[in-house]
Simulated assay, not measured.
Amino acid sequence: MAWNEPGGNNQDPWGGRRGNDGPPDLDEVIKKAMDKMGGLFGSKPPAGGSSSGGFGPIAVIVFIALLIAAVYDSIHIIDQREQAVVLRLGKYHETWGPGLQWKFPLVDSVTKENVTKVQSKSFNNKMLTEDENIVEVTISVQYVISDIKSYVLNVRNPQNSLSQAAESALRHEVGSSEMHFVLTEGRETLASEVQVRIQSYLDAYGTGLTVSKVNLEGAQAPAEVQDAFLDVTKAKEDEVRLRNEAETYANGIIPEARGQAQRQMEEANAYKEQVVAKAVGEADRFNQLLVEYKRAPEVTRERLYIDTIQKVLAETPKVLVDVEGGNNMMYLPLDKIVGNRVTESVAQTGGQSLNASDLDKVTRQVIDELRQRQSSNRRTRELR
């Protein structure tokens, strides 16, 4: 039967039950709970048991929020690449490594830094060299945090200290070098020297930074004199190129000349040995002939004569004909003799051709020479 039908007594289903049969009122339950929580924070309910409805709920919420914030602030997770410095009441307490760490809230303060990351910082400035020239130098400094305690506590601003140390070191090294050295072959040397000097400054300051690399990214003359400087640089490059070419040529010529000199020395030594050996052989041969000559002078003399004649006639265009029952007769090649005489006459007359009288004259000269040779041969045979 519905609550509003006849006989239902008009009872509201959402209203409280009469007596103690109905459920407790929700508002009443909330009020009682708030009164109890307020009692924890010193808030007393007024007479009659009713709640004052003051700061009880707000205090609870604030307390819970503060508790959550304190727990959240007390727990720290340190990454594998990080380290942390803990200050307790402003004084150094300890250094945390990687892992889950806990600190006292409102007492400890934590500073975390990445100690494995290689950081870089660039510097660019115009500087005066030793030979009073201005150069514009750009360097980049790569560094890491090696001591986090010194990095956090010793220096107020380590990055600013690094900038000042780098600029001071660079000015010192550039000011001690000439412009040509800075712009050309001395760049690597300059970068290494600047790195050493920067590290010495950082160690003296106690920054906790370690410089891993210094790169000299650029070194050039100011823009106002850049064109003139490029001309000077080109001229110096040409000088180096020509010097290298000359050295290459010298390195090729000198060994060749030394080789030729050595070859001539070897040839001279060989000729010397040959002449000495030939002289020694001739002397030995003469001594042997002398011994044989003393034993048989006639035979040795005849043999020497025959050998000499054979050697001489072998080198001249002469023909010997042995006629039986008569003396040996010698025939000379008249054509060659005439040719030699003609050549000499032509040379004497300046290249003009010979006439018949000149030819007859040459013929008579040849005949006279033959007769003289025959007569000399007869005398030689008679003397023997």
Rank of each mutant, 00 (worst) to 15 (best):
W3M: 06
W3D: 15
N4E: 08
E5H: 01
D12P: 08
P13Q: 00
G15N: 10
R18T: 10
G19Y: 02
G22Q: 01
P24L: 14
L26C: 09
A33W: 13
A33C: 11
D35H: 09
M37S: 08
G49Q: 10
G49A: 02
G53L: 08
I58A: 13
I58P: 00
F63R: 06
L67M: 14
L67P: 03
I68S: 07
D73L: 12
D79E: 15
Q80C: 05
Q80M: 11
Q83T: 04
V85Q: 07
G99Q: 01
P105F: 02
T111Q: 14
S120I: 10
N124F: 11
T129G: 00
D131N: 02
D131W: 01
N133R: 12
N133Q: 12
I134W: 14
V135W: 03
T138S: 08
S140H: 05
Y143P: 04
I145Q: 07
D147I: 05
Q159P: 11
N160W: 13
Q164V: 14
Q164C: 04
E167H: 09
L170V: 04
L170N: 00
H180A: 10
V182S: 02
G186E: 02
T189F: 11
L190C: 01
A191G: 04
Q195C: 00
V196M: 10
Q199Y: 00
Q199L: 01
S200G: 10
S200L: 07
Y205Q: 10
K213F: 00
A223Y: 06
V225S: 03
A228V: 09
K234M: 11
E237G: 05
E239W: 07
L242D: 13
L242R: 13
R243F: 12
E245I: 11
E247F: 11
Y249F: 12
I254N: 03
R258G: 09
Q260P: 03
E266G: 12
N269M: 15
Y271H: 11
A277H: 04
A279R: 13
G281F: 10
G281P: 04
D284W: 11
R285N: 03
K294S: 13
A296L: 10
R301S: 07
R301G: 06
Y305L: 15
K311A: 05
K311N: 04
L313T: 07
E315P: 04
E315M: 06
T316Q: 13
T316N: 10
P317Y: 01
L320Q: 09
L320G: 08
V323C: 06
E324R: 05
G325H: 04
N340K: 08
N340G: 09
E344R: 05
V346G: 02
G350E: 00
L354W: 01
N355V: 02
D360T: 10
D360S: 13
T363F: 09
R364E: 15
Q365A: 14
D368E: 07
E369D: 09
L370T: 06
Q372W: 02
N377R: 05
R379C: 04
